[in-house]
Computed example of a mutant assay.
Amino acid sequence: MAGHSKWKNIQRRKNAQDAKRGKVFMKLAKDIYIAAKQGGGDPEMNPSLRLAVDKAKASNVPNENIDRAIKKATGDLDGANYEELIYEGYGPGGVAVMVEVLTDNKNRTASELRHAFSKNGGNLGENGCVAFMFNRKGYIVIEQSTTDADEDTMMLEVMEAGGEEMETSEGAYEIYTEPEDFQSAKEQLEENGYTLETAEITMIPETLSEASEKDALKMVKLVNMLEEMEDVQEVHHNLDADEEILVQI
């Protein structure tokens, strides 16, 4: 998973900037909506909702926005009905791309995605065309500067919490779990006093795809364009490129 770590190291530095984007509240509210729609409006009984609420609070989403999203999902307020969908395709140079969306109009969303891929040298594909290249995993980051635990101690605590794997890179412990073990591992590490820099369920590429500098720069434009779309929740890819190019995404 070293390639994934390389990408996530850059993504961590970008989190503070992303949190300032105007659309982040809407995207997080949609996460809450779909989690409550699927599993009920009680975070204590719905781990997906609890995770979505935690992410929203970490980004300073007001409590009234969180409550409103839950009430819409449970029928206490009128609102749009959203669908959670995943689109797959290829970016420039054959880079695998998966796009998670939450939309109340899938025809509009598909059209916008198709335009973005086409404009930047890629193309949307059929369902399943790249999904086999990714694994869904829990992903937790603990900055070494926030703990006195050495690597051996950290590894032991991660294993006891139900973690599957741990890597140390760029001043951080990166922890991977199976999706079903994520919530319990997260809670155990928090109870042990650790501050989690990142805690999410995400898609990990099994292998990375090298691209020429020209294609990598096109890929930067594609990912940035996708992430600017209101319906897009997450963009996953397996691009391998120099850090100075990846940091532009």
Score class of each variant (00 low, 15 high):
Lys119Ala: 15
Ser111Tyr: 10
His115Gln: 11
Gly162Tyr: 13
Val101Tyr: 11
Lys27Leu: 04
Met154Asn: 06
Thr153Phe: 00
Asp148Ser: 08
Gly138Gln: 04
Gly40Val: 10
Asn107Gln: 13
Ile70Asn: 04
Ala35Arg: 13
Ala52Gly: 03
Gly40Arg: 05
Asp78Thr: 08
Gly122Val: 10
Asn105Gln: 07
Ala52Ile: 03
Asp42Arg: 04
Leu124Asn: 07
Gly94Thr: 13
Gly89Thr: 13
Ala29Pro: 01
Ile86Pro: 00
Asp42Glu: 09
Gly89Ser: 11
His115Gly: 00
Met26Pro: 01
Glu100Ser: 15
Lys30Gly: 06
Met155Asn: 13
Tyr139Gly: 02
Glu157Leu: 14
Leu124Tyr: 10
Ala149Arg: 11
Asp76Glu: 15
Phe25Ile: 08
Ala69Met: 05
Glu44Asp: 05
Val97Asp: 09
Asp152Glu: 14
Val141Met: 01
Lys57Tyr: 04
Met166Ala: 11
Asp150Tyr: 01
Glu164Trp: 05
Pro43Tyr: 11
Ala35Pro: 08
Gly40Met: 11
Gly75Glu: 08
Glu64Thr: 06
Glu44Phe: 05
Asp78Arg: 03
Pro43Trp: 06
Arg108Val: 09
Lys119Arg: 07
Lys137Gln: 01
Glu112Pro: 01
Glu83Pro: 02
Met98Lys: 15
Lys57Arg: 15
Leu113Asp: 12
Asp54Thr: 07
Val61Gly: 04
Asp54Cys: 00
Met45Phe: 04
Gly91Cys: 07
Glu83Cys: 05
Cys129Lys: 07
Glu151Val: 11
Met154Ile: 06
Asp78Trp: 01
Glu88Thr: 02
Asp152Val: 01
Asn107Trp: 08
Lys137His: 06
Asn63Asp: 14
Ala131Pro: 01
Gln144Ile: 00
Val53Asn: 02
Ile66His: 12
Tyr82Gly: 04
Glu64Asn: 13
Gly138Tyr: 08
Ala29Phe: 02
Phe25Ala: 14
Met45Gly: 07
Met166Ile: 15
Leu77Asn: 05
Gly162Ser: 05
Tyr139Leu: 06
Tyr87Asn: 04
Glu44Leu: 10
Gly122Arg: 04
Glu112Trp: 01
Arg50Trp: 01
Asn127Tyr: 03
Lys137Gly: 01
Ala56Trp: 09
Lys106His: 14
Tyr87Trp: 15
Met133Glu: 10
Ala116Val: 14
Ala56Val: 07
Ala52Asp: 03
Asp148Pro: 00
Leu156Trp: 03
Pro92Ala: 15
Asn105Phe: 09
Val99Thr: 15
Pro92Trp: 14
Lys57Gly: 00
Lys137Arg: 13
Arg50Gly: 04
Glu165Ile: 02
Ala52Cys: 07
Glu143Phe: 02
Tyr82Gln: 06
Ile32Tyr: 11
Gly163Ser: 08
Tyr87Pro: 04
Glu88Phe: 05
Glu84Gly: 07
Leu156Met: 12
Glu100His: 15
Pro92Ser: 15
Asp104Trp: 11
Glu44Arg: 12
Gly75Ser: 05
Tyr87Phe: 15
Leu102Gly: 06
Val99Leu: 12
Thr146Lys: 09
Asn81Thr: 13
Leu102Val: 05
Ala29Ile: 03
Val53Cys: 09
Phe132Cys: 00
Phe25Ser: 08
Pro47Gly: 05
Thr146Phe: 01
Asp31Tyr: 12
Leu49His: 10
Ile140Asn: 03
Leu28Trp: 00
Gly94Met: 12
Leu113Gln: 10
Ile140Pro: 03
Glu64His: 13
Glu112Leu: 12
Ser59Pro: 00
Asn65Tyr: 08
Ala36Gln: 08
Val95Arg: 13
Ala29Gly: 14
Cys129Gly: 00
